[in-house]
Design a protein around this nucleic acid. Sequence first.
RNA 1: GCCGGGGUAGCUCAGUUGGUAGAGCAGGGGACUGAAAAUCCCCGUGUGGGGAGUUCAAUUCUCUCCCCCGGCA
Length: 306
Amino acid sequence: MPQAPRIICLAGPTGAGKSAIALALADLLPISVINADSRQVYRDFPIITAQPSPEEQGRCPHALYGFLGCREKISAGRYAQKAGAAIAQSLAQGRLPVLVGGTGLYFKSLLQGIAEIPAVDEAISRTLLERWDAEGGQVLHRELAAIDPAYAAKIHFNDRQRVLRALEVWQGTGKTFTWWHARPLPAPAFQTLNLGLALPLDELTPILGARIRIMLKADAPGEARTALERCPDPAAPGWSGIGCRELYGYLQGEYTLEECLTLWLRNTRAYAKRQLTWFRADQSLAWFRPEESKTLLGAALRWLDS
RNA sequence: GCCGGGGUAGCUCAGUUGGUAGAGCAGGGGACUGAAAAUCCCCGUGUGGGGAGUUCAAUUCUCUCCCCCGGCA
């Protein structure tokens, strides 16, 4: 039986320097960088979402960056499909696929698979959302508990996103969320080396602040202004990125640039904290600090030789 | 200087007919199966500006001092 192909995953909180490490690896080996970040997929926000620059993307093939319009939505499942295709393409070119990003769920659905639940009719989702607003979470959570007590017990009645998702899957497919989750997934298709790049939050915070100032110099407000002309709907999926929202408020005159920057940093920091919580729980990750890049690259090369 | 309004959690503020106080945000911890940069859960002792008085009991009432914000001089 042939060995599963190898890929490298580089995960960690925003601002830790993952993209730079990927490029350093590109200097040593033929690789393709594949995005594993849910916001860097948006075409209209290359600066604000910190996508690798065109120059950087020219140094080796990059996939899944900036390919979505502001109104388009991608899901974890669709991401996994696209990433799988990008990996296959990279391997076909004789390049090592290197997944780089900070979206834990995307890594998980790619590497461990995600239940193959068919798409649910949007009318169902819409009706449920209306009912949530009209009847409240407790009513819908109780309804979920009646059909899927195991999953209902795992989530809080205030967790709108999860309560509604579980209900729409039940209504749309006639099977419970728990039933779908219990179905076996295909065996992992790759051998992976999981690398984590991180700093403690208090060390990361000043870096996040500096990065926002760099984005400002690179005319992040101009980027937001252009996006606003193209897509004036702040509820559009593309606008939900941190920095986008805050700049939107500033451009609408809701607050000053100063306040916008404060909010932006605060929200970025809170996000980095959530990422750290997610990745900390992942036992498969080998952790490095940004200044340990040589050690990290050495570990990658050794793993490839083994 | 006078007249108001304030001084309560890191910040913005609420409340206590007198029985030593609680929200939002921030901060800390956690969860995470198709919107995940999303969504959600748990965590609140703080010289109640300082001092004095009344009272069994004062953050609350009284006096006084200090500081802030308006207005008048």
